[in-house]
Simulated assay, not measured.
Amino acid sequence: MDARTEETMPPRHDRTAGRAEQDARALARIAGGDAGALAELYERYAGPLFAFLYRLAGDRGTAEEILQDTLLAVWRSAPSYQGRSAVSTWLFGVARRQAHNRLRGAPPPLAAEPGDGAAPAPGPEDLAVGGDRVHRALARLPLAQREVVVLAVLGDLAHQEIAEVLDIPVGTVKSRLHHARVTLRGCLDERLA
């Protein structure tokens, strides 16, 4: 990026505030029955939501199904959005509830091995959510820790936003992140040894 481009771009907090306003307007339009507004939010958040759901479900197909469930839930519950959190935080909360509904009592699926011995080419989602070694390490985390890690790293949410999504205190978010990092470090070190 050259100096002229940087001069014409608004500061990051202005862009973030602008995005939050766009999201709130889109959600209000969804509440009014505007399917185009749902498509707009989908385009903006499908990647981060899919990455979050993929890490919770451990399976691409299941994550895609939960993402569709999430969109249906957003369509149905948009009128209940009260603006107490950012739309992005609210969306992650809806996705989390849909994932818990779908995954309740089900063990995370194991990664399938390719039939011919050749590894399939990674798709864009695979590249976005990390490699197989990271996926296996995350799968070993308890769900509560995995949620916090995925929201922090892939969702790029702040501690306060994670606390809102999970409905837990900020201190609990920090504690879970700390314990998850220790566990992940051990898992990854174990793999390298």
Rank of each mutant, 00 (worst) to 15 (best):
A35M: 07
E43P: 07
A128E: 02
D167M: 11
L41R: 02
L166A: 05
A35Q: 02
V149S: 02
A111I: 04
E125Q: 05
P114Q: 06
V173L: 04
P11G: 00
L91W: 08
D69N: 09
H13F: 10
R84F: 03
L91M: 11
L188V: 06
T8E: 08
E125K: 01
V74R: 06
R102K: 13
E113F: 11
A37H: 01
A112E: 11
W90H: 03
Q98G: 07
H179Q: 15
A118V: 10
V134C: 00
L110D: 15
L151I: 03
P109E: 10
S77T: 01
P108V: 14
D23R: 00
A158F: 14
F50K: 01
R140D: 13
P107I: 11
D189L: 12
D132C: 06
A139G: 08
G117S: 05
A35H: 05
A144T: 11
D189H: 11
Q22D: 14
S77A: 05
H13S: 12
I162H: 01
G186W: 04
Q22P: 03
A17Y: 01
H135M: 02
A39M: 06
R12Y: 09
P122A: 10
T70I: 09
D189F: 11
A163E: 07
D34S: 08
H135F: 09
A111C: 05
G130P: 03
V74A: 10
L56Y: 03
P48A: 09
T70Q: 01
E7N: 01
R25C: 09
A3K: 03
A3Q: 07
V150R: 14
M1F: 11
A112S: 07
E40I: 00
P108T: 15
R12D: 09
P169R: 05
L192K: 07
A121Y: 02
G47K: 07
C187H: 14
H179A: 14
P142W: 03
E147T: 00
Q145W: 00
D69T: 09
R181D: 00
V87A: 14
Q68V: 12
R104D: 13
S80W: 11
H179T: 15
A193R: 08
E6P: 02
A128K: 03
L72V: 15
A17P: 01
L166D: 02
G171M: 11
L49A: 09
P122F: 13
G115Q: 12
A63L: 10
T183P: 00
R102Y: 14
E147V: 01
A99P: 05
M1P: 10
R96H: 06
A180K: 02
E21H: 15
G155N: 09
E164Y: 03
A51D: 12
A193E: 15
P108S: 10
S80R: 12
S85V: 13
L151A: 08
A63P: 08
F52L: 08
A20G: 04
G32V: 10
A121L: 11
F52K: 01
R19A: 14
D126F: 07
N101T: 10
V165M: 13
L192T: 00
V148D: 07
G171P: 10
V165S: 12
N101Q: 12
S77L: 06
A106L: 15
H178F: 15
R4M: 14
E125A: 14
G58D: 08
V153G: 03
R146H: 02
G155W: 14
R176D: 03
R84Y: 04
